[in-house]
Nucleic acid binder design. Structure first.
Lengths: 220, 220
DNA sequence: TTGATAATTGATCTATCGGTCAACTTTGCT
DNA sequence: AGCAAAGTTGACCGATAGATCAATTATCAA
């Protein structure tokens, strides 16, 4: 989705590429700790002290690697955007809609499972009005959605699927798939399980693909 | 969904029923200001000072009405649960699945439009692990989902709709509808509109109902 | 009118916030 | 080995956090 936005974020926040082994490892530890804390308390609600304690490093160390709290948060966001929409990016009207959307939905759910913290940080940021991402992402997202919507519209015009609004279809896919990361707590309550297993995510994938693909007139 | 949970929350956090007119009005002003701030910064990220400033009242006043920050937050959550799932609550296996789910989806989207702040506060709370709601809501939600899932399963057994997993169907509806409140910022970016109008929400309702209802084998 | 109770709020407390700085150690080149 | 640069971190800063308290004002029954 967001090559351009990610690049600009990186320019603004990323630390030096070349660095000693100790520093690289410490930075990784800090970013991991920061990810957990930001996902749990949001930007304003997270304290550098809490991150430092979780990372097992002095607070001063964090502020030496990253110039301030916003810089650290930006680095975390940059890491997240690093691995956003892999699939569905290069799709054209000639591609098979069933295959493309089936893959897209399943990869989205798998991302929810493998990177729940990243999804949560992103979700909180958006819910709160995306004060730190707006300038990096707003235009980019509009372009990405526009491009994808045109592909879907072409499929519709070719009679390959039902005439549903492409943008709202994308929203449904996003909402339905991200739910498993962002609202994982709620999902666990509903299923009364401390953690979801392979079979749960398999069932989630299959159910979503069945409903959405059949719902837009695609079947296999 | 949550009669019991709401009642217990109220017992724990609600202020006195009987109160002077000035106090009632001030409490309403405070709760409204608190709703905005909590939706924008989460529980930890919100300061009583910011709420007081927005409400135009001294901070001490807030702490006199509500005993502390958790109390105020609890009162806001209680207000939110007050108006949760109106529809789909008394549905039985004898009801028409198309009519029931069609109404449910549309009412969910309308709620997203009319109460975006409530939805956002709830979303942030859940994303962050629901530290303040867990004891009030976890069991309740499991029961509610179980009951609704049984109704859907009865529809499936009666051959009225496709054999999809009822719980994941509910998740898809929740994710797809709440998206319009929680990720309203993202939706606005995608559509490049400062605010969504009647026709946008109409299109959202129609698209979601079409895809989901057709996707589970219901049509009209 | 009076007096007890409730309501209100400015002053103030301690803890913690993000951030700076200076002292010290380690690293790496000559 | 010597030394400048980079790395590291404990001490500390002003600002602000949630919360308490005491002094004042408003309310209302007797």
């Amino acid at each position: 989705m967001v090559d351009q936005a990610q690049k600009r974020l990186k320019e603004a926040f990323q630390t030096k590429e070349k660095a000693g082994r100790i520093r690289q490892q410490n930075e990784a530890v800090i970013l991991e700790a920061a990810e957990i804390e930001f996902a749990q308390h949001g930007f304003k609600g997270t304290s550098l002290n809490a991150i430092a304690e979780r990372a097992g490093l002095p607070k001063s160390n964090i502020l030496y690697y990253f110039q301030n709290k916003v810089g650290l948060y930006g680095a975390v966001l940059s890491d997240i955007l690093d691995m956003w929409n892999q699939s569905f990016n290069d799709t054209t009207a000639d591609d098979d809609p069933f295959e493309t959307l089936n893959t897209y939905i399943r990869s989205k759910i798998r991302y929810s499972r493998s990177h729940p913290l990243a999804s949560k940080i992103f979700a909180i940021e958006i819910i709160q009005g995306a004060p730190h991402l707006k300038k990096f992402l707003a235009q980019e997202l509009h372009n990405w959605v526009g491009d994808r919507a045109r592909v879907i519209q072409a499929w519709i015009d070719a009679g390959k699927m039902d005439p549903v609004d492409p943008v709202h279809l994308l929203f449904l896919i996003w909402g339905g798939t991200q739910h498993y990361a962002d609202f994982g707590t709620q999902v666990q309550w509903a299923l009364d399980k401390p953690e979801l297993g392979d079979e749960d995510f398999k069932k989630a994938e299959d159910t979503l693909c069945h409903i959405i693909l059949k719902g837009i007139g695609l079947a296999r």
